[in-house]
Design a binder for these strands. Structure first.
Lengths: 164, 164
DNA sequence: AAGCATTGCATAGCACGCTATGCAATTGTA
DNA sequence: TACAATTGCATAGCGTGCTATGCAATGCTT
């Protein structure tokens, strides 16, 4: 299958590989936490709430870099599934604070174990040192957020088509 | 925000970081290809079809590690949007072969340029050498698929037993 | 106090990924 | 040739992410 004229090699494209990796991680995590009654979308919210309950939706959004509407929907599912309750803030009528149910609190240890297991398995092919490097690189990429420029900052457009 | 008793640091969790990165990449790519009338889900399929038209759905699925049902839905959207046509195979009545429209063919260069731009921007914080390392690491992780064994180590066996 | 702007959240609608399931066409087998 | 198994694809239903929008509560300005 050796493509002779490769104009774009997806298997050397960071974006494609990141997407593929993310799907693999999600599949693995899903398989391991489904038995607990959890799903991949609720997991990050739980991670934050296991640290600190009573956060507002806005605070959760900021902690996870998720859009507000996405978080609202996720919390609705979590409430439906008996993981959280939303209670209005006494001082501010707009605010809904999020509290874990006993069930959600009890799921912390098995869920974290599942996540650790997935991470360990996925990083299996990397050495200890490489794992640190890998995580550092991802942190830097995320921290930088592709902020090379903003739209309208510069004519932009070109750039060597031959991905080097 | 210095968590005192950190039982699980999501910002050092490969799974969390991979998911976060994937969302950032997708946001960037979406912003750059939406003006072309493309979306992130169609992009991988187009990459394959720009190389070789007339593939079957099964072949596309294999090329992209996407579930068959996901591909069927993606192709339906692509057909709706005038990017592809599905034509039945003459020799096998089950098979639908996928062909690009002239419009889709014309989008190749601008779309690839957009993807390259996103990749370059995202990998900005990494040196040239680090980018290679990063891509190699991702390739290894994907190749190993979190099974704990090396590629080709043993004849399969994840949990496919359960799904028939 | 009145009026406008902002904030916090909900809802609608869609893309895209998944599992489960159904069905027609083909292949393999008795 | 009949009939069971397999293959290729479609559909249903759902989770998770996004943008766009609406609305009530609050804050700010005068």
């Amino acid at each position: 299958m050796l493509d002779t004229q490769m104009f774009f090699d997806k298997n050397r494209s960071a974006g494609y590989l990141v997407n593929h990796m993310a799907r693999l991680f999600a599949r693995e995590l899903q398989a391991r936490i489904a038995p607990l009654g959890l799903s991949t979308g609720t997991f990050p919210a739980l991670l934050v709430l296991w640290e600190t309950e009573g956060l507002t939706q806005r605070e959760l959004v900021a902690a996870l870099d998720i859009e507000q509407a996405t978080m609202a929907n996720t919390l609705t599912r979590m409430e439906r599934d008996g993981l959280i309750v939303r209670r209005g803030d006494a001082a501010d009528g707009r605010v809904q604070r999020v509290w874990l149910t006993p069930r959600a609190r009890a799921l912390r240890d098995p869920a974290v174990t599942a996540a650790n297991t997935v991470n360990e398995a996925a990083l299996g092919p990397l050495s200890k040192a490489e794992r640190e490097t890998f995580i550092d690189m991802m942190s830097r990429i995320i921290a930088t957020r592709g902020t090379g420029r903003g739209p309208g900052d510069e004519p932009e457009g070109r750039q060597a088509a031959a991905d080097g």
